[in-house]
Design a protein around this nucleic acid. Structure first.
Lengths: 234, 234
DNA sequence: TGTACATCAGTGAACGCGCGTTCACTGATGTAC
DNA sequence: TGTACATCAGTGAACGCGCGTTCACTGATGTAC
């Protein structure tokens, strides 16, 4: 079918538009992403882009979901490829590496939310995928048992539907008491995952935002210290 | 002098403008802060505001430095008022409380940086004041000695010039090796302060950005856990 | 292989809008004698 | 207390700009016979 070629071109143009949008994001932030400017950069006029996106919001949404998916996939893959004992470290470094390579995309999803922009529910679902990978990685840490659905040995299988993380978290947390210091209860595991998330985000986001600039120390050393502290179970 | 009254009105108008700007910040983010709209909300025309600010950038800068100062002062005061044993907890809660009360101002200074906006050096200096308070609070933790200039007993004395934190940090870090696990060396103290900063920021920023929404757990419990972990020296 | 028709990509003009900023000007408020 | 002058606050018109989005239209690319 010749229609397939047309379809391919279509996809290609969409991708190009998003790529240009990302450079605008890097240069001028979310507010700097402009339909007209993207079109111009691609050598066409503004309205042409409306053949590919219903409007600016759809483009933005696409950028966001892409970023979530990208990060989740990169992380899941890194974890899957690592030896069992290295899984947690692999997780941490995968997230940080991704963020450092594409700071603007990281901030797009984990930075200050775009005001008056409501993310579609789809977004939350993809975001949960990363959380799931973190959970699995935490389960590989010493003493943690592995009764998670989706065996920790193969974390983040792509096709598998994401379990209802929210409800799961809620259940475990109210069941075991919040982060009870008992020996690796379920609540403990969830707490670990959450703390992993927040701590990694703490170092990564401040680093990526340039808040460490001029402070005369190596952010990656600080990051390493946090990772080891997490492994130590602190 | 009648001139004093005029001066007072002037200051008052500036403050009102900034207050309106803050509501705009809350509603539409940094990009939503508009000179014309602020003026209209105050019942005057756009150009009138140019009697009070040289332009939009000065207004923005003022908002940012105000936020830094406000947070630093609130924190320093809370620490100073606390009993020695409670200083660290007081620090942590002061920062979080401030952020939760004024999420937009917190994100203004510790969120995604305004693109193409260069903060004046003055900003860094004020930001260092908070870091200084954190350092002092960390020094009150078990085993830490207190040879910091500006006695930890009275942290954050307002008038005192901020010591060159950057150089200080660099010196200590290269001197003692980065966060050597020795018993409360200077490097260790600095590492603690940094980790305190990044961890608190991790929980606070994600919370304030609404990333925990719908996850079915109480963010303040997570925060508490992090504070206690920091005190435990983990 | 050729022709008739449908679908799609892209253009150019136009819409209303709000932005930051400048400029010349009017009144009001202050100061000095 | 009254008058002459200087300073300041605020207005209204105008500048150029870029934005998202719509609309009618032209060509090109595909499909069906």
């Amino acid at each position: 079918m010749a229609t397939a070629r047309r379809e391919r071109y279509r996809k290609q143009t969409r991708e190009e538009a998003k790529a240009v949008a990302l450079t605008q994001l890097a240069e001028a932030g979310t507010a700097g992403i402009s339909v007209n400017a993207i079109a111009k950069a691609m050598g066409m006029t503004g309205p042409a882009l409306y053949r590919y996106f219903t409007g600016r919001d759809e483009l933005l949404t696409e950028l966001i979901t892409d970023a979530y998916r990208d990060l989740a996939e990169a992380t899941a893959q890194a974890v899957a490829e690592a030896a069992p004992a290295d899984r947690f470290r692999a997780l941490a470094h995968a997230i940080r590496d991704w963020a450092k390579e594409q700071p603007d995309r990281y901030l797009l999803i984990y930075g200050t939310p775009v005001p008056s922009y409501q993310a579609p529910p789809e977004t939350t679902e993809i975001a949960a995928r990363l959380m799931r990978t973190i959970l699995d990685a935490c389960a590989t840490l010493d003493g943690a048992h592995a009764e998670q659905p989706g065996e920790p040995g193969e974390p983040g299988e792509p096709g598998e539907p994401v379990t209802d993380l929210e409800a799961e978290l809620a259940r475990h947390l109210e069941g075991a008491g919040p982060w009870a210091p008992g020996p690796t209860s379920d609540g403990e595991l969830k707490g670990r995952a959450l703390r992993t998330w927040t701590r990694l985000h703490g170092v990564i986001s401040l680093d990526v935002q340039g808040q460490f600039r001029g402070m005369g120390f190596d952010p990656s050393v600080l990051f390493e210290a946090e990772v080891e502290a997490l492994i130590r179970g602190a």
